[in-house]
């Protein structure tokens, strides 16, 4: 039962979907404050390399090393995001071009690769990795065993994050404020809400989440450092925010769906099942499906408009005439 393709796909979809979930939650926070950050891929890569470096170089117990790695990854992601924040919030540069610049700066041919090489990280597997939290006996329970109890701590924390962000946005005062900043910065400003600090805070938080997302790849899914290891996950995460109508609970559903698609290729190969004519088809499936879902979502124009923060992508300046 637990070895059936469906159960395995769901369980590994959750695992593979976790980096997507963290990254899309972060992007959601930034976008809800009105800042589009296309640099997710780059921030993830820097988070991935710095998290991995921490685990390799900090010689303590696994628990401390991994905790430190996650914190370092979050910090690294936030530092990357701060460049974007400065350019688009303070200097009011184009959010699209700045985000692309961040991807180039930090991405597979940039800082992450520089650090990976310079710190000699590609020669060994991770010294510590995240493992399933619950005992093996529980993981053997039918259906819920592998799906619910077979996951590592990052998965459970991500569930907490989804609930926390959902509550934050819908039930708290800062949540109300950030939504107003993303919808109508002029209105927020008039009511004495500091648009600049809210945007900075959420863009940086978004970067931290992207950093964690990257580290969750190098420390849980494929515990090693390979240049460009994210393979476009950052872009899928940005698309996920659109699919999710800017709602955290739907980010979770979308992330696991795309996680399952990524898990599909290796699972099918392991079972010698061929889906469609070629291996090309299976490999390209996550990307093609992302495009297909994007088209479906954006065709229902009215609905997607209902989700997007009205001021997304717009710089705000009070004294411009």
């Amino acid at each position: 039962m637990n070895n059936s393709l469906l159960i395995v796909l769901i369980a590994s979809g959750i695992a593979y979907g976790t980096p997507l979930l963290y990254a899309s939650l972060g992007e959601l926070l930034a976008e809800r404050s009105g800042v589009l950050n296309l640099g997710v891929e780059g921030m993830m890569l820097v988070g991935a390399v710095m998290g991995f470096w921490t685990v390799q170089r900090v010689h303590t117990s696994a628990g401390i090393a991994l905790t430190a790695a996650i914190l370092v990854a979050a910090l690294a992601g936030a530092v990357m995001a701060s460049i974007h924040a400065f350019l688009v919030i303070t200097l009011r540069a184009s959010q699209i071009v700045s985000g692309l610049a961040l991807t180039i700066f930090a991405g597979a041919a940039g800082l992450s690769s520089y650090l990976g090489n310079d710190l000699n990280l590609s020669d060994a597997p991770a010294r510590h990795t995240f493992h399933a939290v619950f005992p093996a006996s529980m993981q053997r329970w039918s259906v819920i065993g592998p799906i619910v109890f077979g996951q590592d701590i990052l998965v459970y924390v991500s569930w907490a994050c989804v609930i926390a962000i959902w509550l934050y946005l819908s039930r708290t005062r800062p949540g109300l404020n950030v939504r107003s900043v993303g919808e109508s910065p002029a209105a927020a400003d008039t009511m004495g809400i500091n648009v600049t600090s809210y945007r900075y805070a959420h863009t940086l938080a978004g970067g931290a989440f992207a950093g964690v997302a990257g580290a969750s790849i190098t420390l849980a899914i494929t515990p090693q450092w390979v240049n460009g290891i994210t393979g476009g996950a950052g872009w899928i995460a940005i698309a996920l925010v659109i699919f999710a109508f800017w709602r955290p609970e739907l980010c979770l559903v979308g992330a696991y769906f795309f996680g399952a698609l990524q898990a599909l290729a290796p699972q099918l190969q392991a079972r010698h099942i061929s889906l469609g004519p070629t291996v090309l088809w299976t490999n390209a499936l996550p990307y093609v499906m992302t495009i297909v879902v994007l088209v479906v979502v954006s065709s229902g124009t009215a609905r997607s408009r209902l989700g997007a923060p009205a001021a997304l992508g717009n710089a705000y300046a009070r004294e411009e005439r």
Binding site: R173, L176, S180, E183, A187, A188
Partner: peptide
């Protein structure tokens, strides 16, 4: 200067430091 997707009540609570919007 209103947030058009918010309700009237949410708009009133925005930036409120005295009344119901004061709480976390």
């Amino acid at each position: 200067r209103l947030v058009s997707r918010f309700t009237v009540a949410e708009n009133l609570m925005l930036g409120d430091r005295r009344g119901a919007g004061r709480h976390f």
